[in-house]
């Protein structure tokens, strides 16, 4: 039952014995989820720090590297991920108001967006591989102006690769909670795993919000 923006706690989920009640378990789980997200931010952030340092050292080289990226594909993927964040948040919203079937569709849409993102990524990667724009010692593009253009593509593949890996992990996690939702394991009183997966998925979106301008719109 829900009134205005709140739903009360009660329901069929049994909380673990060392917690006082389901709410205690929920807020503890939330804190744990946020602590884990901090580690994700820090891990990606280390890459960003490296990127910033070298971008400041070699601005022309980074601009040259960025010129090989298609900003339209990047922008398209940005819209795709924003949409997927919306549908993810809607998935949680629908579970909270008791519309589990709508939630399943929202989660499926999120999965579809993730798949579209990876397909676009696939085209981007194959284009670069075809041209020989590969990281480090595999770099084989003969018309490079900057001497160390290979480093740009090292960053490009590391950052988008790590991000893409997280997209795939996120899709696996969404599939997991989708299946559990279809089995009726979630309701307005208990949906903690969906909340956690949702926050993880928004991190994926968050990273891309910074990756897009940094990689595609530079120079």
């Amino acid at each position: 039952m829900s009134t205005d923006n709140h739903v009360t706690t009660a329901g069929k989920h049994h909380h673990a014995h060392h917690f006082k009640d389901a709410w205690h378990e929920f807020i503890s789980a939330k804190e744990g989820i946020w602590l884990f997200m901090v580690t994700e931010i820090l891990m990606f952030g280390g890459l960003f720090v490296g990127y910033f340092i070298y971008h400041m050292k070699y601005p022309e080289m980074f601009a040259e590297g960025a010129s090989f990226l298609d900003w339209r594909m990047g922008a398209f993927n940005t819209f795709v991920l924003i949409g997927s964040s919306l549908t993810m948040a809607l998935g949680i919203h629908y579970i909270q108001v008791g519309k589990n079937k709508a939630a399943s569709w929202a989660l499926i849409t999120t999965l579809a967006c993730g798949a579209i993102f990876m397909v676009v990524k696939y085209f981007e990667y194959t284009h670069k591989i075809h041209l020989g724009l590969l990281p480090g010692k595999f770099f084989a593009y003969p018309e490079a102006v900057s001497q160390n253009l290979a480093m740009y593509f090292g960053f490009y593949f590391c950052m988008t690769g790590l991000h893409g890996t997280h997209v795939l992990i996120g899709m696996a996690l969404i599939t997991w909670v989708l299946i559990r939702n279809m089995r009726g394991e979630f309701d307005s009183h208990y949906f903690t795993p969906v909340e956690g997966v949702g926050i993880f998925w928004h991190i994926v979106d968050l990273i891309w919000i910074f990756l897009f301008p940094l990689l595609y719109l530079v120079g």
Partner: peptide, 10 residues
């Protein structure tokens, strides 16, 4: 991959 982030040659 020889990315180059720690390599002075790159």
């Amino acid at each position: 991959f020889g990315v180059g982030i720690f390599d002075p040659a790159l």
